[in-house]
Amino acid sequence: MPWSRFDQTSTATLDALPASANRRVISFKDAMREAIDQAMNNDPRVFAIGLDADDKFGVFGSMLNLSHPERVIGTPVSENAMTGVALGAALNGMRPIYIHLRVDFMLLAMDQIANYIAKWRYMTRGKVKVPIVIRTVIGRGWGCGAQHSQTLGGMFAHFPGLKVVMPSDPYEAKGLFLAAVKDDWPVIFIEHRWLYKNTGAVPEEMYVLPVGKGRVVCPGKQLTLVATSLAVVDSLNAISKHELDVELIDPRWLKPLDEDLILNSVRKTGRLLVIDYDFPACGFAAEVCAMVAEKGSQFLKSPVQRMTFPDCPMPASGVLEKAYYPNADKIAERIRGILNGS
């Protein structure tokens, strides 16, 4: 199996890598491009498919100038059947990467995602494997409005049989993407477009980050802050700008969730705030809060808290967008409120 060639799993965050490690700095977008290219070079069964997968913009630059353009297949606007095509190819031995430029279009494929892909291994008792990665780009702002700004990570995590991951920086993006491609389960890989230009040190060689393991982004004593994707960046800004003594946890995977990492942190801090850039009802933040309330209530000095989008669709007007979306200052304000007992 070509994947055994880079079977070593990195459990460290990049900061913990030895000084001799490669410290080349590249963007999130280029880290994704490199990961996709390496995955395709490494294994001829890996191919990419989706609307505009082969267009001249290369999926916001993340798929430009790949070494194997013959394995990049553009599709009509037929998300549902095309997702079924990816499933059929996976069942017949391939390792497809499906790409959606906007997560909102994934809802057209929910029959295949929820009824087929999520359930296929269970229904067939694992006699067939389902190694599919569904990449989807999320974003917001510029008046994109209600149908071009959703996140939906929690909704995908709702279905047993799907894994869901949301990387927050270039190093994470490459390692988590290669882990997703290597996995024999379907993985929903959610990329925030606002992270695309962010840069960070990324090793040139292939590496995978572990499935279902989160990371402590920065240690702290007074509160456990759980965030994914862009919310990790905003949280870090909140912590540094407002000099907060909180522990920031990036679970990376909405599912499988690294419960121990979160519970161990709450054991230390006694407080939990989950930042989830998604709708609140029945969502990921609610899930983490419920998990800590169920399994860690003895550690809690104050009730679990969450910060999400409001329970309404995204507005288009810039004024309303400003009111709608959380940011570093709003996160800091919320943390101060919890610490002050208000």
Partner: peptide
């Protein structure tokens, strides 16, 4: 490699499998 009780969607699976056979 599995069968589906939901009408229609399974048609795409055969197409995907044939795409794999073609690519390989």
């Amino acid at each position: 490699l599995g069968s589906s009780a939901l009408v229609g969607g399974g048609i795409a699976l055969g197409v995907g499998a044939a795409l794999a056979a073609k690519l390989e």
